[in-house]
């Protein structure tokens, strides 16, 4: 496994600009309202390509909302208004000519509760290929994609003999890994994770964190977590949010060792949250 160093993010195959700007995601004055409630207030942030960035903050601070802006799934609900700009690889994803389907192909998402589709393991992994390919992929291409993706998340040896089993019958940890695996055939640049370990036990959490480290470098990973220890263990950079505002964004060790803002310090010391 080749993992790019922090300083030298690896350019991604298929990304619009091969040279690759230094920043994976740039937002400018991002505001979001649920009906009249403002959930995000002028978020301006640069998230670097190829590293793991964690979003922390107390419940209701807007971290999940922010994450769900990055692939625009927030817009499923009709009462959401968004303002501002989010650039992913230099392209504003709120531009009128952006195809949501292409965006979501590039930006994968892992949810809080593992949500494999109620079809076979095999079909879960190739779901993305099936919905995005106009021409039918051949059986051997699909087989190869399944093996590659499941190998990458470390499920292949356990599951290779029962690919036709229902995905919902797997253990939660395996389900969550499968949810990551099914993103990979689409060759995303960016993987969003919304508290991916909150329904897993200690072992499962460790396994997912290990997997994140394996994927680091090839994918930009943004993870929302309630668990500060997890943010500290698993991420390179850390963003602290409070009441819809971005309070602090820095390297994880700096944020935890010498927070610049007193609110951050209070939070990581557990005075509220």
């Amino acid at each position: 496994m080749s993992t790019a160093s922090l300083a030298k993010p690896q350019p991604q195959e298929g990304s619009p600009t091969m040279a690759g700007p230094p920043h994976g995601i740039t937002t400018r004055d991002l505001c979001l309202w649920y009906a009249k409630f403002q959930a995000l207030k002028n978020i301006t942030v640069r998230i670097r390509h190829g590293i793991i960035t964690s979003l922390i903050g107390p419940s209701g601070c807007g971290k999940t909302t922010f994450l769900r802006c990055l692939n625009r799934v927030n817009e499923r609900y009709g009462y959401v208004t968004t303002q501002g700009e989010i650039q992913i690889h230099g392209k504003n994803i709120y531009d009128a000519d952006v195809s949501l389907i292409e965006l979501r192909k590039q930006v994968g998402m892992v949810f809080q509760r593992p949500n494999p589709l109620p079809i076979s393991i095999y079909e879960n992994v190739v779901f993305g290929l099936r919905i995005h390919n106009e021409k039918k992929a051949s059986r051997s291409e699909l087989d190869a994609a399944v093996e590659k993706s499941l190998t990458e998340v470390g499920l292949w040896n356990d599951l290779k003999d029962r690919l036709q089993a229902r995905a919902t019958s797997l253990q939660l940890e395996q389900q969550q890994k499968l949810c990551i695996a099914r993103l990979l055939p689409l060759k995303p640049d960016l993987i969003l994770m919304d508290e991916p370990c909150s329904s897993l036990d200690v072992e499962g959490t460790r396994a997912i964190e290990e997997l994140m480290r394996e994927l680091r470098g090839r994918y930009t990973i943004v993870i929302v977590t309630h668990n500060m220890a997890q943010a500290r263990r698993a991420s390179d950079e850390c963003i602290f949010m409070l009441l819809g505002e971005l309070v602090e964004h820095s390297r994880t060790e700096d944020l935890f060792l010498s927070p610049k803002d007193s609110k951050t310090a209070d939070y990581i010391e557990g005075r509220y949250g």
């Binding site: 979501r104 589709l117 109620p118 779901f127 099914r182 993103l183």
Partner: peptide, 27 residues
Amino acid sequence: VPDSFREAAIALGATRWQMVYRVLLPA
């Protein structure tokens, strides 16, 4: 049908019809 199935399909870039046809109808 749990909403998480819809979100899963949509987040993978499925169109609404693909979601209905490939996820909701079987489920």
